[in-house]
Each structure stands twice: as structure tokens, then as C-alpha cells.
Design a protein around this nucleic acid. Structure first.
Lengths: 346, 346
DNA sequence: CAACGACGTGGGAGCGCTCCCATCAGGGGG
DNA sequence: CCCCCTGATGGGAGCGCTCCCACGTCGTTG
């Protein structure tokens, strides 16, 4: 469609064609208001005719901004949450960035060594900001990045009092809702399988479980709590422990759908019917939940929305107009399925 | 650890500190052999002391390469293959790129409009090459990108005679293996639920099914073939159609695990036992397969390996030393589970 | 012993932008 | 009627690299 004669056209060429100066073209491209309507039109026309597209590298060099942001995901977690968690997150982030005409640099970090290398990237000024997923309790990276003066927003937090801006879901609310639901269905001895307790998300869900029991006037009992690790096998192990200690349990709040799948298998092997003998509630509302037999009641998190929110917050941070509050907690929602029908005959 | 006094150090500063010229530092940084050992050491020291990291934008501008590659995934597909397909692919690509010190730019394309915008990115010279996932039969994008002179490698192909370099799995082999297995288990009336037939991958799997039957001396029968669309609901529909037409079927090769999950539900509702009455084989070996009841026999594809191979090929294309052959077909593997035990009593 | 490569090396000339300053027209107020 | 302010404009000066050419400085060859 256009005159491509030895490489792509430059600003200068557009300027020449439009009969204006380089500065004016730049102003038009960047939407500055201090340009006459006439000049604007002439430039727009030249741009179209030449098929001009600004060279990103030159822009970045001259303007010291890259229009790219990095999303950092620890590879180990990506494997763990095999469920579409990260894909949903990426989808949200990507959508928001696309709308803002920003690029998404995805960084799967496999090892501590690679994380070091990541700091090099930052130093190389490849990105304007960083989105950090799945941070563990004692992770120093968020602070390090901030020290470098680079805007960061995290997915989840490391502790209750997180200094770095973040977007999290209401994990406490998730636990409470699950327990409240089980209580309402007449369950008496409600156990829980937690995530790894070095992660805040796991502690928060456990906290919600406790709070839920308290609200129902029940006294929490340690023998009804068993720690998993967010894997299916971890779910199996925890469930076996629970069954050994408390064969009388009649409901379990499992802190992830994947663990719930493991727990469900153990229950089946132990001859317990779900939901007849034992009711089950998971967290994530992942495809697994729908496919389980019976389908699993689960607490849904707005993952894609988290991604969008994170990206939006980060863009504001980069723009220098941070959005308050810088800590967001999005609501969760209980999706009721067949895994916790009311106690029969009661 | 280092003297950060107003911005990051530049090449020039490193040169000054090392007592050499700018050119020499550049040579050391880029691993040119034409540098004396002495100079090399002096530079290395200065780099370490100053904490120097080359500015990526400047490099890109001067050298006209970005060290970044784009991975383009149609958003619609990402939703479809909810299964960890893309995450696995990304993982493979990411690993290979990290080893080569390249950046991964992830582009989720939501609409035709965004695809246009993607061509702008390319024109802006943001990336050195492009990885294209999930291309449909008549997609012009791969050719367009090549016309722009940008190296491309695709995941899958658009047709048997694909001109653009690609990495695919042996979908025909997948179908054949599945059918052979069902035949070996004594199944007689083997049906298939296909993917959308405008995608080569779906046609190839169907072709494999046909070939498998032929090899077993069976005559394919159209009433045993039903088209799905890779969704669970599509699987349900196709299965219902099959059951209507051929209530006597005793096995189904379903072209994806997700559709198999749908089909399994329909079979249950119809009172057919799996594998007793009807044996089932899926494709993907996704978590769903393991979690199904009974666990689903499925054809595994080396997805992560595909990602790695694609990235490796692309890097070679970019380097100007293309790896032959430029079309790769990776083998698949049948993972046997309980969904197709041998016919009872035979 | 002169001439000539090979090797290291320094630094100029861009790469294509953005930033900003100087300039030029106008238009309104003193 | 002149001055000053505003708004629009052109273009110089970099941004921090890579590329490449020209320049020593040796060791080697005829």
C-alpha cells in the first residue's frame, strides 16, 4: 500500500512530506494540543501515505520509557496452580495493557538465579513497571524493585501488613463463606485442609475458616485442621490424616480445588459418600470443580478482574498519579454445587 | 553495592574507569574475540564496580535488534483450551528464550482489530521474530508477517502443505494409536468426535482415526463420525448425536479431553458405563483426564517440548542460520488409563 | 633491513526519537 | 502606535549504544 523504499519511514521523512518540522510531527504523533488543526491534518495524511510507525527503540532511548511492563511468575507456582489461574490472570493483565497500548513482557522465573537475572532486565530499563505474582512470605524481591525506583504491584500479599501495593482477593471472606454454608447445611464437624502456611493466602483462608466457626458459635478444634500444599497429592495426604484423627468429620473446607480433588479420591477409597457422609467445599471454581463427581461447591475468585486491576494500578503508578487505595481486596463468591447437599434426614 | 550517582552508568563511564575506549568496552560486553586479555579484565572489573548494565533501548536503536520475540495467542483459543495447553507452551518457549537471554513478549489477541494493531508492533520493530499459536485454516497473518521480512514459526499448521516453518504434533499418529488401542481391546464399533474441521489439527486427528480403522481392516462409517468444536458442550452435543444414530457403538475416540468430559457426562446420563459399555480415548492428557471417573486414556502431546522447539527454530531463523527441516512433527504417546479396559467376557 | 600483515584499539558517525529553546506571527492592552 | 504575551513552529542537542574506519604496534617475511 505504501512506499517502502529501503527501510521504514522516519519522523524526518514524514515531516518533509507534510511540509512541517520534525517537532511538529512528534507533537502530532504524541497528541500534544499545541498544534494547529492544519498542521495536524497535513501530518496525519503524510503518516497514512507513508505508513509511518514510530520506532519503539528510538522512542525508548530518547524518552526513557518503554511502554512495556513485566509480569513475573515463579515457574514452580505455574506448575502448581496448573489450573487456569495464571492464564486468567494473564488474560486480565493483557486486556488492560492492550487498551492502554502497552506491551506485556512475560517472565517465568525458574530459579533464584533467574530472579537475579531479572534484576538485570530491570536495570537495563526494559520495562516501565513490574507486576509480581505469587509472592511468598519472605520474598525480598518486591522491596528490591521498589528500591530501584521501579513501580510494582503484586498479586496477593506477603503478610497482613504489606507495604507494597497489591491486589488480593478476600481469602478470609472465602473461608467464612464456605464454613457458613456448611453450617447452614447442618454440618457439625467441619474440618479444613489448608495450603502451605508460609503463604499468606493459606493463612488467610484458614483464618476465615476459624472466623466462620466462631461466628456460628463453634469452637475450632486443631484435630480438624490439616496442612496441605496446594497439590493434589498434598490434598490426599492431608485428607488421610484428617480421617485418621477424626473419622467422625462430616464436612471439609479444602483451600483449593486441586487439593479437593485429591481429598475426594481419599474419601471415595475410605467409603465415604460425598455429599452424603462428607460435604466438600473447595476454592478457585476451576474446571476441575465442575468436572468432579459430584460437582464441587467452590469459592470463586475474580482472577481476571485481579489482573485488570493490577495492570490499571500499575499504569497509574507509572504515570505518577497513584490510585488510592494502593491495596485492594476483591470479593469472592460461593458457587454452590452438589458436593454439599444438606444432611439427609435432618 | 555500587556508585549510583544520578542514573545508571553508561558505556562511556565504564570505558573511562577501565582506561580504555568505548569501542573496546563494547567489544568486551558483546564477547568479541578481538580484545586483549588485559583489556578484557580491566573492563570486566569496571563493569562490576559500576554495576553496569547495557541500556536495551540504545542497543536496539543502534543495532536494530531487540532481543525480544513475540508469542501471539488468539484469546478465543486461550479460553477454549482452558486446559494448561498454552501455559505449557509458554513454559517451553520461555525456558528456551531465557537460556538464550531473550525476552518474551506475550500478545493475547482478542479481535481482528487487535491483530491489526499487532502488525503495527511489528512495524515498530519491537521484536526480532514471532511465534504464532493456534492458526486457523485460512489465516493470512503468517504470510503477512513473512512479507514484512520478520521470521515466524507457527505452532501447528494450516494445512498439509504449510509453507511457513512450524512445529506440530503427530495428530495423525494420535488418531491411529487411539484406534489401534481400542481395536486391541476388542472394540468393534468405534466412533469419533472430531474438532472443528476448519482446523487442520482436527482434520488430522480424524484422518488418523480413519487410517487406524483401515489398518485394522475396518471400513470407516460416516454414521460413527460426529463433529465437535473442542468445547465440553460441543462434546456433549456430538456424543448425543452419535448415540442417536448408533446406539450400538462401543468405543469413542474423542479429539480432546475437554470434549471427552462432555461426552462422558452424556454417556452417564444415557446409562452407558465407561469403560464397560463404551470405551473412551481423549487427546491432550490434561489434568481433566486424570480426574475423570474413570480416569481417561488419552494421547499425550509434548506441548512444552513444542514450545522449546519453536523458540529454538525461531532463534535460528533470526540468526540467519535456519535449522532444517523447517517443519517439525513431534511424536505423541498414548497414556493408558481405565476408560478403555478390554471388553468384558471376551 | 624494509615492507607488510595481523592484531588491538580509539573514537567518529550515526540509529530515530523527545525535549526544549529560540523564533516568529498575531492580537490585545497601555 | 508600540510592546508584550500567547500560541505555533523549526530544529539543535542529546539519549547510549553499535558499526566501522583509521591508526598504531608488533612480529613476520622476502
Amino acid at each position: 500500500m505504501s512506499g517502502r523504499q529501503g527501510g521504514r519511514p522516519t519522523l524526518e521523512q514524514v515531516a518533509a512530506r507534510a511540509g512541517v518540522g520534525r517537532g511538529t510531527v512528534s507533537r502530532v504523533i504524541n497528541g500534544s494540543p499545541r498544534v494547529s488543526e492544519q498542521a495536524r491534518r497535513a501530518v496525519a495524511r503524510a503518516v497514512a501515505e507513508l505508513g509511518y510507525v514510530p520506532n519503539q527503540a528510538a522512542r525508548a532511548l530518547a524518552g526513557s520509557r518503554t511502554d512495556a511492563i513485566a509480569l513475573v511468575i515463579p515457574e514452580a507456582e505455574a506448575r502448581l496452580f496448573a489450573e487456569p489461574y495464571f492464564l486468567d490472570l494473564i488474560r486480565g493483565v493483557s486486556a488492560e495493557l492492550a487498551d492502554a497500548d502497552r506491551q506485556l513482557l512475560l517472565t517465568l522465573v525458574r530459579s533464584e538465579q533467574e530472579r537475579q537475572r531479572f534484576e538485570q532486565y530491570l536495570a537495563a530499563q526494559r520495562v516501565d513497571g513490574v507486576l509480581l505474582a505469587s509472592v511468598h512470605g519472605d520474598d525480598p524481591l518486591p522491596d528490591r524493585i521498589r528500591e530501584l525506583g521501579i513501580p510494582v504491584v503484586m498479586n496477593g500479599r506477603r503478610s497482613e501488613a504489606e507495604p507494597v501495593p497489591y491486589v488480593d482477593t478476600d481469602n478470609i471472606g472465602a473461608g467464612r463463606a464456605a464454613v457458613a454454608h456448611l453450617v447452614a447445611r447442618g454440618r457439625d464437624r467441619i474440618a479444613t485442609v489448608t495450603g502451605p502456611l508460609d503463604m499468606y493466602v493459606a493463612r488467610a483462608r484458614l483464618g476465615g475458616y476459624m472466623a466462620g466457626l466462631a461466628e456460628a458459635g463453634r469452637i475450632p478444634d486443631n484435630s480438624l485442621v490439616s496442612a496441605g500444599d496446594f497439590t493434589e497429592e498434598g490434598g490426599r495426604r492431608a485428607m488421610r490424616g484428617l480421617l485418621d484423627r477424626r473419622p467422625d468429620l462430616d464436612a471439609v473446607f479444602v483451600a483449593s480445588d486441586v487439593m479437593a480433588a485429591g481429598a475426594r479420591g481419599v474419601l471415595r477409597e475410605a467409603g465415604r459418600r460425598v455429599p452424603h457422609d462428607v460435604a466438600l467445599v473447595g476454592v478457585d471454581d476451576s474446571p476441575v470443580a465442575r468436572l468432579m463427581d459430584p460437582p464441587l461447591t467452590s469459592v470463586r475468585q475474580p482472577i481476571e478482574e485481579m489482573g485488570r486491576t493490577m495492570a490499571r494500578m500499575l499504569l497509574r503508578e507509572i504515570a505518577g498519579t497513584p490510585e488510592e487505595p494502593r491495596r485492594r481486596v476483591l470479593p469472592t463468591e460461593l458457587v454452590v454445587r452438589d458436593s454439599c447437599r444438606a444432611v439427609s434426614g435432618s
